[in-house]
């Protein structure tokens, strides 16, 4: 496939954490005008091609952090670096997938996917869009309206649109949160397959522990009020992964460990 460039899909046992940092946060603080900052002095480094999950109870600032990565919000203190360059404002180098697909309802599926390539003036935008739709298994509905698709299909179009310009970074804000359990687990496997082919750097925001464990090479657990990194956990399961790993003792052990951290945090936020 022409779109797959340079990615080493050798199925390495762990994600390439030693790769040069693609996204970096340095002492990032964000206030929403409340007494305690929404994000307090967070420093993170995410390597190229890494799959990182931001996990935490609602209100822990994980979506705020994603907005910082996307350039929609600049930090009140601290710096954001993309490929070691200051990252200011929204950029086509970060593809974004939202919880509610946010497709353009007035464009057909294929036009939605071709939107980015057209905007950036890439050659053969429609061809690129078709290739991406093929990748997410939706080439049959290229000319349908988004509103006529199921939730899972709409979300896959969203992923195709985010990837159509081949951005080095893919930011995902609880992308499967609104899907039913069966569709969600299919989508998780599909996302891993796509990631394995294109190897973008993925930052995946979720509050679902199993989802984070299944997908990510590294899980960053956030604590709330103020939003900080509570714990970083490397997930050692070999790739490609199948849902069967969820039954392994190691998986269950990780899940319990993270659940304990999150329960404390959720209780803090609940008050």
């Amino acid at each position: 496939m022409r779109l797959v460039a340079g990615a080493s899909a050798d199925g390495s046992a762990t994600d390439n954490i030693l790769a040069k940092p693609r996204l970096r946060l340095e002492h990032v603080t964000i206030n929403y005008g409340r007494s305690r900052p929404a994000v307090d002095d967070v420093s993170l480094s995410i390597g190229a091609g890494e799959f990182v999950a931001l996990l935490g109870p609602s209100g822990c600032g994980k979506s705020t952090l994603l907005n910082v990565f996307a350039g929609f919000r600049s930090p009140d203190r601290g710096r954001v670096l993309l490929d070691e360059q200051p990252h200011l404002g929204p950029s086509a180098r970060c593809g974004i997938v939202f919880q509610k697909h946010a497709l353009f309802p007035w464009m057909s599926v294929i036009e939605n996917v071709a939107f980015g390539p057209r905007r950036l003036g890439l050659d053969r935008p429609l061809e690129r869009a078709h290739a991406l739709l093929d990748l997410v298994g939706l080439k049959d509905v290229a000319h349908a309206w988004p509103s006529s698709l199921s939730g899972g299909m709409q979300q896959r179009v969203g992923i195709a649109r985010a990837l159509a310009t081949r951005p080095p970074v893919l930011l995902m804000d609880e992308p499967f949160g609104a899907l039913d359990a069966q569709t969600r687990s299919l989508m998780q496997e599909e996302l891993l397959a796509i990631w394995d082919k294109l190897k973008p750097t993925v930052v995946f925001v979720t509050h679902d522990i199993e989802e984070a464990l299944f997908l990510a090479g590294r899980v960053i657990v956030m604590e709330s009020l103020p939003g900080r990194v509570a714990r970083e956990i490397s997930i050692p399961f070999p790739r490609p992964r199948a849902h069967a790993i969820m039954d392994q003792p190691a998986f269950i052990e990780h899940r319990r460990e993270i659940a304990d951290v999150i329960r404390i945090e959720a209780r803090k936020a609940f008050r």
């Binding site: 996307a70 929204p90 086509a92 946010a102 939107f115 905007r119 649109r161």
Partner: peptide, 22 residues
Amino acid sequence: DRKTVEVGRAFRLSPLGLVRRI
């Protein structure tokens, strides 16, 4: 939908482009 506007901003649509296209 604010998110569709953000998609437009990510592809650096000008204010006029945002009005016209989104």
